[in-house]
Design a protein around this nucleic acid. Structure first.
Lengths: 350, 350
DNA sequence: TTGAAAGCGCTAACAA
DNA sequence: TTGTTAGCGCTTTCAA
């Protein structure tokens, strides 16, 4: 950034045109004659000119920057989402400005984002205070909560149908004959956990059962491992465990098999949520509920781009369907029930 | 970004000071009296003023943006690196501008980065043409190749000692009595694969053995699975497989156990590289070589920040030590040999 | 289609 | 310590 700085003026001089002509050449849809256009392009190439996006952003008010907030990247669901999101946004001419949130500094973070004049915000695996959301809304920046849902917030949200997902798991487990069904919760204040658990317990109740025991994993690997230990601490343990996401389910599996010496699914059934790649790996073969990550990303980008182009922020709420992915970590009910639970393409993807 | 736009001038007016006074208040280390400072801060708070980083960047020539290029995020090594890198950079006042590279559009990508006036570049799991590297060097932007090493490039690099890592694995396998040792390579043109393989085969030779068979996984899960199948295709398969990274080793493990019905390590020893979290999980308990990710990040940030602050770009080359992590996917040699191979803290971390 | 001119919001000399 | 004055590199009226 030292002395190189080739500006549009340098190009203009070399091409013998006005500086505006250079600007127009690099502005899609501006009116330039083919001749000047070529002259400018030639000069630009010769000098190695690169338009300064920051300068453009200042005047046009569009930075082409999308802030993406993520709380952690160790649960594989999020890296994959981040990769797809980033690629898709790039395709639309936007770049991802990454923010790793700390539980404490959310407010600071949002200030930073706004300072960078980001055109839009995606909040994945991160909570946002209503004050902050309101602040964003005020500045007219579209916000999409990814995999989060907060009715009171003036922000769009894209989620999958966690309620139904939870229900499906309940039905699967009950119909397979389980009678001591436990649940390991994620973060208590997250909408994902709330909905998955609500659907799960509601369906349990509908089928005449109650949750046999409940642990809290907080969506962390270690938290889930401890929760699993606690769940099995008494004389008799659960015969099935539903874990609020795959990442925690792996921890539970390790405890159940390696520490407790129990077999999955012969001694205890295990079901996760998300369908991250590892769930399909041979080490776990986890029966789980698939969140349609790709569709969720597509929807997120659609909402964002639409609002960016129309310059109108409207609250959207997309809830995409999720379905069971049957592998071999949970005992199966009879074929008929199984078929009724099966979503599209439920056949054990690996 | 619509009408909100509270500028420093608005704040100045309200605080009854000059616009420069406002600027100074928000510039660390500028000279402002305590009185004006407070007046400005109060006015700023009242109006909800946020300095425009872009405008600042334009004049100061420092965007506080670091471009991070990554090719994929499905190998857990990279998300974790990205998370730490981002956090560390944030702490130093920089933000990560994320670029997901496609094999084809590397050039475009670098153009984009330069257009955004990034202050520095980190290339992780991505190759860079020498032309591009030179272009960056010319503009005076520090570039750090993370986990890549290209001698000819005018870019710093941070790697771990892959040569020694490969050697350690060879010694472990040979000393454990293996005689049909195979290798599954990553990307042929990557320095990581080259060094790991070079160290491996060199040590094999030193111990009087040759590579029994070789496959190519290209650092992808599916590629590695296929390579594993091919490796075991004949009448007699390998009795040990060294895989160029953990991510591929999991694929190999699945093929070996689930498709071939062999036991690890009783029938075949398996060793990976990286020590990603999943390697410690119960489903794999993978013996592997640990890359010191955290130290590598620290070093990367150190190099970057130092060059940014001194405004002098110098080529640095850091090679950090790696060591074996013994778990249970590979047969063990006698205790004495094992002890000699053991790096610091080799005790099976889980 | 083109050029001149007026800024976008800010920092950084320079005087005062 | 302060205010004044130039711009940073670009887009965008407005005339020509």
């Amino acid at each position: 950034m030292a002395k190189d700085t080739v500006t549009s003026e340098d190009v203009a001089k070399l091409a013998n045109v006005s500086q505006s002509a250079v600007s127009r050449t690099f502005t899609p849809g501006a009116s330039v004659s083919e001749t000047t256009r070529e002259r400018v392009l030639a000069a630009a190439r010769e000098l190695g000119y690169r338009p300064n996006v920051l300068a453009r952003a200042m005047i046009s008010g569009r930075s082409q920057l999308i802030a993406v907030l993520v709380a952690y990247l160790d649960n594989q669901f999020y890296p994959i989402v981040l990769e797809q999101l980033s690629r898709s946004l790039q395709q639309h001419g936007y770049q991802v400005l990454l923010f790793m949130t700390d539980p404490g500094n959310q407010d600071q973070m949002v200030q930073k984002m706004l300072q960078y004049q980001v055109d839009g915000i995606v909040m994945a695996s991160a909570t946002m205070s209503s004050t902050l959301a309101r602040e964003c809304a005020q500045t007219g920046i579209p916000v999409v909560l990814f995999n989060r849902y907060v009715p009171a917030l003036p922000a769009s949200s894209v989620t999958s149908d966690n309620l139904t997902g939870g229900q499906l798991v309940a039905r699967l487990l009950v119909k397979a004959g389980h009678r001591r069904i436990a649940f390991i919760a994620g973060a208590e204040n997250s909408s994902t956990n709330r909905d998955r658990e609500a659907g799960f317990t509601a369906e349990l109740a509908a089928l005449g059962q109650r949750l046999w025991r409940r642990g809290i994993g907080g969506y962390t690997f270690e938290g889930a491992a401890q929760a699993a230990r606690d769940l099995f601490a008494g004389d008799v343990g659960p015969d099935a465990v539903f874990v609020a996401n795959d990442h925690m389910a792996f921890a539970a599996a390790d405890v159940i098999r390696d520490e407790l010496g129990l077999r999955i699914p012969q001694d205890v059934s295990l079901v996760g949520y998300d369908d991250v790649p590892e769930a399909g790996w041979g080490g776990y073969k986890l029966t789980t509920v698939k969140q349609p990550g790709e569709q969720m990303i597509e929807e997120t980008v659609r909402i964002l781009v639409e609002q960016l182009e129309s310059r109108k922020v409207v609250k959207h709420e997309a809830i995409l369907p999720s379905h069971l992915v049957i592998r071999s970590s949970a005992r199966l009910p009879d074929a008929e029930t199984l078929a009724s639970l099966a979503g599209p393409g439920t056949a054990g993807t690996s």
